[in-house]
């Protein structure tokens, strides 16, 4: 019964996502595209960070490579960047696997730091290898649909749905169980016969791939990329973590909610309070980490219990 209702809500949400946007303004559709992109990124990060417990401070590496996958094809061979939708994630995965092989030997904060350093290294390399990447000038390509937003929106929607699907499948398989076991206790996982290093790599692959896919979408939608924007430590790597954190790590709907709220709030705050929007944002992040460290989804049972108790006490008074 419960399950049926959930599916119903889901189906309705899906239909809304498909039917409503054509009737919305350009700006609103733009925001929705970003929302879908951030949902994808948050889900990508969460496979490695939230489920497997390997906190990456450098996922912009995969976002950037995803963007550059198509960008480089276009730059060197004039191939349409839509091929980047395949090339980007593949490039991200190809780079992600050796990174994992090397860095998964490190535990906890050391892994986080290593990813942070790699993020910086790759950003600097892409800025300075002029002949290969066109350096800081970045890559510009023509937009397939000009100023038209709707086609991009539907592509973004499909990508986000794909990310949700992949996450759902992972969660309901051996992989999901093994990933979470590794997060909860690596030694116990080994003792249960789980090859922890190999499974961290298995988590890295979809994580890098999905993040790369979001990067490829960005490349096609924004149509110009620079190393400093797609490999941005703060605006990509860190914000991905914050987005997941807001929604709740380690679940399916946590990152979805987090990505949506993050991208939506970011735009709304910027439109309404302009210059101090980012300050408000950072303060919200501080408060969430201090008081709801498991995010909205993760802390929901606690919040609900609290509200119930409130209701009960007020009820008995009245």
């Amino acid at each position: 019964m419960e399950k049926k209702r959930q599916w119903l809500i889901l189906a309705m949400l899906g239909i809304l996502c498909i039917v409503v946007p054509p009737f919305m303004g350009t700006y609103a559709v733009h925001v929705l595209i970003l929302v879908m992109m951030w949902i994808t990124m948050a889900l990508g990060w969460d496979i490695l960070g939230g489920k497997t417990g390997q906190i990456s401070f450098g996922h912009a590496i995969f976002f950037g490579l995803g963007a550059y996958g198509g960008g480089l094809l276009f730059l060197h061979w004039n191939i349409t960047p839509w091929w980047g939708m395949a090339a980007g994630p593949v490039l991200a995965i190809i780079v992600g696997i050796p990174i994992g092989l090397v860095c998964f030997r490190l535990r906890g904060p050391y892994f986080a730091l290593a990813m942070l350093a790699l993020n910086e290294i790759i950003a600097i390399v892409f800025t300075n290898l002029d002949t290969l990447t066109n350096g800081a000038t970045g890559i510009d390509c023509a937009r397939t649909w000009g100023a038209e937003k709707l086609p991009y929106y539907y592509i973004a929607l499909v990508i986000a749905a794909f990310a949700i699907f992949v996450t759902y499948r992972i969660q309901n398989s051996k992989y999901g169980y093994y990933f979470v076991s590794i997060r909860e206790d690596q030694d116990a996982a080994e003792a249960l016969g789980i090859p922890t290093t190999r499974y961290k790599i298995y988590a890295m692959i979809p994580s890098a791939g999905i993040t790369g896919l979001a990067g490829a979408l960005y490349m096609n939608y924004i149509s110009s990329i620079y190393p400093e924007t797609v490999f941005a430590l703060e605006a990509i790597s860190i914000f991905m973590i914050l987005a997941v954190l807001i929604g709740g790590a380690g679940s399916l709907w946590g990152p979805v909610l987090g990505g949506a709220i993050f991208a939506g709030l970011d735009e709304i705050l910027r439109a309404t309070i302009g210059p101090i929007s980012f300050l408000v944002f950072a303060v919200i992040a501080v408060l969430i980490i201090m008081f709801m460290p498991d995010g909205i989804i993760g802390s929901w049972p606690k919040v609900r219990a609290y509200l119930r108790r409130r209701k009960l006490t007020t009820g008995s008074e009245g």
Binding site: V180, S181, E184, D185, D187, A188, A189, A191, G250
Partner: peptide, 8 residues
């Protein structure tokens, strides 16, 4: 020293 997978 027991090692439960705590949040499972």
């Amino acid at each position: 020293i027991v090692k439960p997978l705590r949040r499972m």
